[in-house]
Amino acid sequence: MENTNEAVEGEACFEGKSDISQVKKLLFRRMLVGVSDGRFFMGAFYCMDKQGNIILQDAVEYRSTRRSSPSPMEQRGLGLILIPSSCRISCHVDCSIDEHLSLLSLQAQN
């Protein structure tokens, strides 16, 4: 855990570039993106552009079967998808608890 913290701090010194390199580290990690109509997409993070549009590989769509929140989820495979930033509402990455903490600390710095 200390190592990761140090790495984060080290990268923070590269003014401005730290965020980009952080995101680059997330490539091909499992990413969970929520969109504005309530669905979620989980897939491997493949690409992101300046506008914040995200491309996911081997994506799976999750949707709840009911409008009320605690309801079973349906899922289906979609493959390669592009999620425009305009309809993206949340974005999570699958990571270990240590990493999670380092991310949080990074956000605190910013």
Partner: peptide
């Protein structure tokens, strides 16, 4: 593992791009 929120990280990375 857990789901870590990276929305703000992505946003700031977008600004830097």
């Amino acid at each position: 593992t857990v789901w870590a929120d990276v929305a703000s990280l992505l946003d700031s990375a977008c600004n830097d791009l």
